[in-house]
Design a protein around this nucleic acid. Sequence first.
DNA 1: AATTATTCTTGACATTTATCAAGAAATAAG
DNA 2: CTTATTTCTTGATAAATGTCAAGAATAATT
Lengths: 188, 188
Amino acid sequence: MNSFFEQNASLLLENPELANVFENIMSFEKFPKHAILHEAGKICNNMYIITSGIARVFYYKEDKDITCHFAAEQETITSIDSFIQQKKSKYNIETLEDVEVLKISHSDLQNVFESNPKYERFGRLFLQQIYMDLVERIDDLQLHSAQERYETLFAKKPYLFQRVASKHIASFLSITPETLSRIRGNTK
Amino acid sequence: MNSFFEQNASLLLENPELANVFENIMSFEKFPKHAILHEAGKICNNMYIITSGIARVFYYKEDKDITCHFAAEQETITSIDSFIQQKKSKYNIETLEDVEVLKISHSDLQNVFESNPKYERFGRLFLQQIYMDLVERIDDLQLHSAQERYETLFAKKPYLFQRVASKHIASFLSITPETLSRIRGNTK
DNA sequence: AATTATTCTTGACATTTATCAAGAAATAAG
DNA sequence: CTTATTTCTTGATAAATGTCAAGAATAATT
């Protein structure tokens, strides 16, 4: 599975020129805990920048619920396969806390790109950034043990371990909840 | 580790407008088998489109040689971390056969982007494409067994199993050569 | 607050994959 | 073509992680 706009949204929000453009196409929304922001099988038209709370991307692999991305404050989340290619998604997006987001639609974003090609640059830079995150995640999965993957995630996103159910962290790390529980036991 | 411009280069080569621009900045080169196209520790200034032969990206993790990308005809290869960020690379690139490439330098590519922002679009689309490849690779690593990863790779790139040393395929699949050998034995 | 449902932990055991070792096969070098 | 080197295969064994089950802890519902 995969990560999804693993990156924080600073590239999009902290550029003064872009911020103006984006202000016009972003809308503010609130969702309660356990809300579904996107459902598998549909085309995902939106990308969200989370300003408060946590959400996850997940899907079902033979009945098992697999989390492939978490996003917290200042991070972006979308069903990336679907958003990029505008085709049906295999992923769901669900809030894990009450969540506040800035929403950007695919069509508005395309309009920005088409209005002036200079904005393509930010699209490219943003993709470069999230691409490097994926490279890191593959590195992690390709050659680290369950214990090491746990430690890496804990170092990067310690808050997940206090705010998110263990079973989701386990599937994200590609281990069983039992193994995660034992690893956490060891490390104390 | 990671994949690297996993994608074939058709996006860059089959667009008539781009083809013209690229023709001016691409140079043809030949390398013998086992040539080093890029060395870890240096900044990678070039991206290669392979027109003949196979090459791999690899690095050393505690003395172990880990392959993280293969590229054959019509595919691109570079030390992506370094090429994107123009910083020292942890990756090496090595030919596994006699190889012919089209070479594009980072600075020439940047000049194209800056000459007219409309070219940024292709950079963005190219990144989208290779991003989706990474998503697939993570999916594969996150929840498939050694046997399943073998089958996936065999389905996607069967020619690797005839042209590339098993040990490289094993490290790419994140298994030992012994396990790969046993899997291959089973499947016959 | 009490009850119910879900999630987490822990143990016993099974399975997968890794490690080590040695010979066979393939490749490279003389 | 012969020899040396590297890689591949196979077996025995060990380590890591998964599965199943049951009770404890936590969270959700009434």
